[in-house]
Computed example of a mutant assay.
Amino acid sequence: MAKENKKIKFHLFDFKFTPLKEYESSNNSSSILKSCIDRINNERTQNNKAIVVDRNENRDSESRQLFVSSAAYRLKDKVYKCRIALIRDGKIPTLVNKKNYTLTSFDQLGSNSIAETTNFYIDMNSKVPIVCCEFHSQGPRISDIEYYFRYISSHHMLGLSKACKASIHMEMPINDVLTSISEVLKFKIKVRPQRLAYINDSVNASFVGNMSELANTVDPSYIKVEASFRDFGNVAFKKNNKAKTFIKRTLNDINNDNQVGDDFDDFYLEFENNKGNFDTFSLISGKVELGVNCTYLSPGNIDTKELYNRIMVEFNSYLDSKK
């Protein structure tokens, strides 16, 4: 019987660290990242433990415990081959028998827990590392990786950096939209109600607050808003500065905080640029995406060696195109 294949998608980002002032002359993003990975691997080899970071430790929400389970350096490629895990305490799955579709409880784990894992590969050929990260809807995301390494590099552990930013590669970078947008023609937003609170705190716009109030009124699974600002059958129109202010504020916050971007299920924009041309931007489908087919070794268990070898062909081709 032929082994099942699955299409695996990857997104990319620059991994930028800002050294503390006293380390500006001796450290850059690559050296700080290497120090972080050395610290992770030393904890594993010397103490047989992982560095576990709870992203929601100081928030009134469910814990989000993360740890890098492996980080091996491939000298030939100058690439770190890594895997990060998200512990799913309190979310014990149920087993299904696919012959008769009966369910069996899976609650006798003892000291073990379920974890979702995400593979990511870090190219170290320049001063700013570039990361190729598996897209995993249930597992750790780019913003989780960013938070994890920010924690380790900061005063919490190594005390080397004052900031860490994962700058996601987009087909149209957000900064290009911000500098070129002249008029907002249309936007579409889709978001789950439980994510609106963080967006509202960050963006601090009455439009998002009104979405939150509406969600509280009717309790939907998600809320979707589409707004148009020009009647193309009418030549005369007036500028809509309120819409442009809202969009620019939202894009700035997405650009500065990856969690804001993660909280949108869709963010689509049609706009007129400063040259008078029509343009579009999509936060979700507008990310640079690489994809490969990979074999299952067993149900749900991807061949990670094959995955690495296949995606590195695409990753290297992408890097070459940027030179």
Score class of each variant (00 low, 15 high):
residue 262 D to F: 09
residue 235 V to H: 09
residue 234 N to Q: 11
residue 256 N to A: 15
residue 251 L to V: 01
residue 260 V to P: 00
residue 273 N to A: 08
residue 170 M to C: 08
residue 260 V to A: 06
residue 153 S to Y: 03
residue 240 N to V: 07
residue 139 G to R: 08
residue 183 E to N: 14
residue 167 S to C: 03
residue 211 M to A: 01
residue 276 G to I: 06
residue 177 V to K: 01
residue 249 R to D: 13
residue 194 Q to K: 15
residue 272 E to P: 01
residue 228 S to E: 13
residue 278 F to E: 05
residue 247 I to C: 02
residue 231 D to Y: 03
residue 228 S to H: 07
residue 168 I to K: 09
residue 151 Y to K: 13
residue 214 L to C: 07
residue 143 S to R: 08
residue 180 S to G: 09
residue 221 S to G: 06
residue 217 T to Q: 13
residue 181 I to V: 14
residue 159 G to D: 09
residue 266 D to S: 14
residue 226 E to N: 06
residue 142 I to P: 03
residue 217 T to P: 01
residue 147 Y to H: 15
residue 161 S to K: 02
residue 266 D to G: 10
residue 201 D to W: 06
residue 238 K to F: 01
residue 229 F to Q: 01
residue 133 C to F: 10
residue 146 E to H: 09
residue 245 T to S: 15
residue 271 F to W: 08
residue 246 F to R: 05
residue 188 K to C: 06
residue 259 Q to D: 14
residue 263 D to E: 06
residue 209 G to Y: 03
residue 152 I to T: 02
residue 145 I to N: 07
residue 165 K to M: 10
residue 206 S to L: 14
residue 187 F to N: 05
residue 190 K to D: 15
residue 134 E to Y: 05
residue 136 H to T: 15
residue 247 I to Y: 06
residue 156 H to K: 14
residue 228 S to L: 06
residue 262 D to W: 08
residue 203 V to E: 08
residue 193 P to S: 08
residue 174 I to A: 04
residue 204 N to Y: 05
residue 275 K to S: 10
residue 238 K to Q: 11
residue 149 F to I: 11
residue 274 N to K: 12
residue 171 E to R: 10
residue 217 T to N: 12
residue 165 K to C: 09
residue 209 G to W: 01
residue 258 N to R: 12
residue 142 I to K: 01
residue 161 S to V: 02
residue 220 P to A: 07
residue 269 L to C: 02
residue 221 S to F: 08
residue 183 E to T: 13
residue 255 N to Q: 11
residue 224 K to G: 10
residue 188 K to P: 05
residue 161 S to H: 05
residue 170 M to T: 03
residue 240 N to H: 12
residue 197 A to N: 14
residue 226 E to I: 10
residue 270 E to V: 07
residue 177 V to G: 00
residue 142 I to H: 01
residue 164 C to Y: 07
residue 249 R to I: 05
residue 156 H to G: 00
residue 263 D to S: 10
residue 250 T to A: 13
residue 140 P to E: 07
residue 228 S to R: 14
residue 207 F to E: 15
residue 263 D to W: 00
residue 200 N to E: 14
residue 221 S to Q: 12
residue 274 N to H: 11
residue 197 A to T: 13
residue 229 F to D: 01
residue 278 F to R: 12
residue 256 N to K: 12
residue 192 R to S: 10
